[in-house]
Each structure stands twice: as structure tokens, then as C-alpha cells.
Amino acid sequence: MSPSSPASGLLFALGSAGLYGLNIVYARVAALGGVSGPAVVIYRVLLMLALFGAVAAIMRRSLVVAREERGTMAVLGVSTAFVGLCYVSSVAFIPVTVAAVLFYAYPTFIVLASPLVEGTKLTPALVGVVFLALLGIVLVVGPAFGDLDWRGLALALGAAAATATQFFAAARCRKTDITAKMFWIHLIVLPTAVLAGAATGQLTSPTVLALAPFGVIMTVGGYVIGFLFQIVALGRISAVAAGIVYCIEPVVSAITSTIVLGERIGPVQALGGCLVLAAIVTNILLERSRAAPIVPTD
């Protein structure tokens, strides 16, 4: 398997989605320990900047963005910032479960927009895989739709749209060194994280992280490695292929929450998880068939 092959890109995407699934559970553990979400976001962004700035200095890697990708990098950074800002803000108006279902509509957004953005042919098989995954996510999350505030709905859907934009931008930003991408994305995200912390009155000193050290380490570590894997994956596979793979994230979260937080998975959620897995396997098989070389016949 070539290091830059689509198959390796799918593996990186699976690893990233799995780590993100763990990340949100341990963010809950950290919150229960007294560490707020904005505090975790701010310090993990600062960690990313320090980490990749150090990597660039030690390994003498350039932080220069390829000239033709500077606009794309700006879009990638801004969309990454809006993903967190919109998603976190949405739960102030609607239940978390409803926000999660709306947010994980982003693979559908990616597929529907791909003919315009990437020129991808919208096949019935691809559409079927996306809606199978979306149905599975709805069953896994199990939302209780009650009184819904339009502001929360708009913010959650905005987060989904920002995520789709992030995937498309990352898939087009392939010439810039990975270290430079990681550094500049988080440099753009930092002001948004600080503003969110200031707006919620949760700009605190780093000592607050000691209230739940294990939860903080797991959620920050899951994000750092997961985001790195995401950027690597999107440099090797299409946004459409990656978007479907990331449907595994809420399934991992549901399973991990039963182990770590003692929550229970019912038969409907188990069925949803199976549907998501079936969609991902089908997508991988479709990707392999598209990537297979055509053998000429005599």
C-alpha cells in the first residue's frame, strides 16, 4: 500500500473519526470534573500552535503556505473555527441530541454539493450510502425532538455546513506542508476560541485543567491526533469518501459512553450502529471499485 494511496487515506479517516468519538466523551468527563469546554478548546489550540511551531523549528520545516493555496487555507481555518463556534453555541437553544443529529447531516451536504465543488458524479449508490449512514446516526443518537428554537437549528445546521466546507477545503490543500497547515489553521482558530471564552466568562488560567487531568489529557490528545489524521486523510481521499467514513464518530461515542460514563445502548441504537458500519463498508468497497485499474481487453 502506497503511503499516499486512497486506502491509507480511508484508514487515517477511520482513525481520526474514532479519536474524535473518544474525544467528546472525555470532554464530558472533563466538564463533570469542573473544566469548561471553552477552556479546553483554548488550551488545546495553544498546544497545537506550540507543538507544530516547535516541529517546524526542530525539523526545519517551512511554515509558508503555497501561494496558490493561501485562499483555500484561509477558508479552511475560518470554517474550522465556525465548526466549533456554531456547534457549541447551538446547544444553548436546543437539546444536545437534536444538535448532534443536525450536525451529522454534513456528509449529506458534502455529497449533494460535490457535483458543483468537485465535479463528482452523483450516483444512486452514493446517495443510498449517505442516507443509510444518516438514518443510522439518527437511530444511534436517538433525539427527543421537543420545543425547538430556530436559532439552535440554524447554528447546528451552520456547523454542518462549515464542516462540509472544511472537508472540501482540506481536500484541495495538498501542496502545503502538513506542519504549515496545522499551524496556520489553529492560528486562525485561536481568536475565535478566545472570543468564545470571553463571551461565556470562562477565560481561566491553565491551573483549571488540573481539576480533571485524565479527562483533559484524553480529550486534548484525541483532538490533536484526530485532527492531524483528518488533515492527512483529506490530502489523500475525496471529501465525499471521508465524510461518509466520519459517520462512525457518533457510534464510537455511544459505545465509549457506555463504558466510561455508564450510559446504556438500546436495541434501536445498536441497529443504528450497524447501519452506519454497513454504509462505511459499502463506501469503502465503492471507493476500491472506482480506484481499480481498468484492464484493457483484446
Rank of each mutant, 00 (worst) to 15 (best):
F52I: 08
T179P: 02
L148R: 01
V216M: 06
Y223K: 00
G273K: 06
V64H: 13
S62E: 14
G84N: 14
L19T: 12
L122A: 12
A164W: 04
I24W: 12
M1S: 09
G221R: 06
S16M: 05
L76A: 13
D147K: 11
C247L: 03
A81K: 04
T282F: 05
V55R: 08
T163F: 07
I188H: 03
P293Q: 09
F227Q: 13
G221C: 08
W150H: 09
D149A: 12
R60E: 14
A199H: 08
F82P: 03
V295P: 00
A7K: 12
A50S: 14
Q269A: 15
S90L: 02
A99K: 03
I280H: 00
G33C: 11
L76N: 04
T123W: 04
F229G: 02
G128W: 09
A198D: 00
I94L: 10
C86R: 01
Y106M: 05
V40M: 12
A233P: 04
R44G: 10
V268L: 13
R290Q: 11
P206D: 07
K121Y: 04
Y223G: 10
P296K: 04
V276K: 04
V41F: 11
A162F: 03
K175G: 14
I280E: 00
R264K: 14
V276N: 03
F109W: 12
K175E: 13
G262E: 07
L228S: 07
A171C: 00
I217Y: 09
A7I: 11
V189R: 06
Y26S: 09
G222M: 03
Y223I: 11
F167E: 02
G146L: 07
R290H: 10
G235I: 03
A39R: 01
A233Y: 01
T200H: 01
K175L: 13
G262I: 03
A279T: 04
L22Y: 03
V281M: 09
T97R: 04
A113I: 10
P213A: 12
E118R: 09
F227Y: 15
A66P: 00
A169S: 12
A125R: 14
V129E: 08
A100N: 08
V194T: 00
F52Y: 15
A212D: 11
A39D: 05
V138T: 13
C274G: 15
S90T: 05
R236V: 00
G201L: 12
G221F: 04
Q166S: 10
E69F: 12
P95R: 06
S257R: 08
L275W: 02
V88N: 13
L195R: 06
A199V: 07
S289H: 09
P250S: 07
M59H: 11
L277H: 02
A198I: 10
G37S: 14
T297R: 14
T120M: 05
V117E: 06
L228N: 03
